[in-house]
Write a protein that binds this DNA or RNA. Structure first.
Length: 470
RNA sequence: GGCCCCAUCGUCUAGUGGUUAGGACACAGGCCUCUCAAGCCUGGAACGGGGGUUCAAAUCCCCCUGGGGUCACCA
């Protein structure tokens, strides 16, 4: 029982990596890292119709973003065709597979009939013992499924799940065109890759007995299985585009941190006491299949947002800044408008105010613009004629602050306030609108200092002339 | 419909026979306060129903109900 842990994540490149797939990949990856095992990536690209190279690349890109590295692979099933052919040949020779010359139409007819009679729709096995078939007739290969008995899936999570063999079909393992089928390839690959644990979505539970039958036919012992719960939309329906973003890369665009995204996804169906926020290392250290939940989980965008903010607040400033700069450049803004020290200050001031990197960029934008883009309503409400005086005096006070620090600015403000007999709120908002264009920003003293004395004065002058103009 | 899985606040979950059923998100109220956040405090909110087993059941068993999955020469 001391076998080496070897797990695999096996997406098909018929679409983007979505949340559900990512979560399955995560559980596999964390299990491997926790146990010191091997994580393998295998792309199931045998669907000629729907597989594309673009999706293949996008899937790898998604893993790159998530920071999941694979110890082996990516393997591609299209590069392993000889192996499936070899396995099929061995099964044919052993009599655990047979040639079937029935056409899809004929099989469909059988199913219709069985369904009409209220029985399990399945192929009736009429080609099982035919030795008289015309050798030139096209044929597919079917697995010879036992007529009686049962196939038991020993699931690490669900316990033993029993399937009656008579419910199972003689499934096609090699198509008439020679292409091997999914359930066959999976089993052959998992045998070849010496997979010890198959951790995958619950939707595969009913495929499992079919795959176990292939293991049996090939004389191999099946791996351990763990079928994890699925992710549902807020309407408890399977997650789809209707529920908003589902592709992993979309979350990158929206400004989620990979560690936060991982944190949220892993917590969906897995728990460790009352802890909500985890670093990657903490998950590796504490991950266990035993703590996985059996029931389906509803995706909650608000909690994802909260998780993201938690990671933004605790993240390393330099890394966050690099990500912020990327987004500023995408908005045609030049990060070098501020010194690196000031930029780090911007991150510190804004990290408690942003749930995503996009919001971080929104809040930082006014620092990196040449001038100010005024918000109409803010101007109307706060840059009124009566504040011209106090604002002008605040301008002079600010001009005299040396060195230009938040404490210094604060002291200068206090002097003006006292002379004017005003409350800070009455002065801070006009100044804020003057230098940011809007009514929301970090503390006014910090904001002035990060923006710098020169640029602050320029902006206040601009606001002053705006007030005096009309 | 057959087969299979699942079932604690709106949501994510803790709980493994004896708890005032805990935490988190969200929500509501308050404190703090130069705006917005963050932070702190408070509040409402759950064991789907019915039978058993037991001195005792959210925890074990059965039925029902509800939700999900799956029934291809797709993966």
């Amino acid at each position: 029982m001391n076998e080496a842990v070897r797990v695999r994540f096996a997406p098909s490149n018929t679409g983007h990596l979505h949340m559900g797939g990512a979560r399955t990949a995560l559980f596999n990856w964390f299990f491997a890292r926790h146990t010191g095992g091997t994580a393998i990536l295998r792309v199931e690209d045998t669907d000629q119709e729907r597989s594309t190279e673009a999706y293949y690349d996008a899937i790898l890109e998604a893993f790159d973003w998530l920071g999941l590295d694979w110890d082996e692979g990516p393997y591609r099933q299209t590069e392993r065709m000889e192996m499936y052919a070899g396995a099929a040949r061995r099964m044919l020779e052993a009599g655990t597979a047979y040639r079937c010359t029935c056409t899809p139409d004929e099989v469909e007819e059988m199913r219709q009939k069985a369904r009409a009679e209220g029985k399990t729709p399945k192929y009736d096995g009429r080609c099982r013992d035919r030795y008289d078939a015309d050798p030139t007739e096209p044929f597919c290969l079917r697995l010879r499924t036992p007529d009686e008995g049962e196939t038991v899936v020993n699931d690490l999570l669900a316990g033993s799940v029993t399937f009656q063999n008579d419910q199972l079909d003689d499934m096609v393992i090699v198509r008439t065109n020679g292409a091997p089928t999914y359930n066959f390839c999976v089993a052959v690959d998992d045998i070849d890759m010496r997979i010890s644990h198959v951790i995958r979505g619950n939707d595969h539970l009913s495929n499992t007995p079919k795959q176990i039958l292939v293991y049996n036919a090939l004389g191999e012992a099946p791996p351990r299985f763990a079928h994890i719960s699925m992710i549902l939309g807020s309407d408890k329906k399977r997650l789809s585009k209707r529920h908003g973003a589902t592709s992993v890369l979309e979350f990158r665009e929206q400004g989620y941190l990979p560690d936060a995204f991982i944190n949220y996804l892993v917590r969906l169906g897995w728990s460790f006491g009352d802890q909500e926020i985890f670093t990657r290392e903490e998950i590796i250290r504490n991950f266990s299949i035993d703590n996985l939940n059996l029931s389906a989980a509803v995706f909650n965008p608000k909690k994802l947002l909260w998780t993201n903010q938690e990671h933004i607040m605790s993240g390393e400033a330099g890394g966050l800044l690099a990500l912020l700069e990327e987004r500023l450049r995408a908005r045609d803004l030049d990060p070098d408008m501020l010194t690196r020290e000031a930029r780090l200050g911007v991150v510190e001031e804004l990290r408690t105010r942003a749930k995503t990197l996009e919001e971080l960029a929104d809040g930082a934008t006014f620092f990196f613009r040449q001038g100010v883009e005024f918000d109409e309503k803010a101007v109307k409400k706060f840059l009124k004629p009566e504040v011209a005086g106090p604002l002008a005096r605040a301008r002079e006070a600010i001009a005299g602050v040396e060195p230009f620090s938040p404490e210094g600015v604060k002291t200068a403000f206090e002097r003006v306030l006292e002379a004017e007999g005003m409350k800070l709120g009455k002065l801070a908002q006009p100044v804020r609108v003057a230098i940011t264009g809007g009514t929301v920003s970090p503390g006014i003293f910090e904001t002035l200092c990060l923006l710098g004395k020169e640029r602050s004065l320029e902006r206040i002058d601009k606001a002053l002339s705006l007030i005096n103009q009309p």
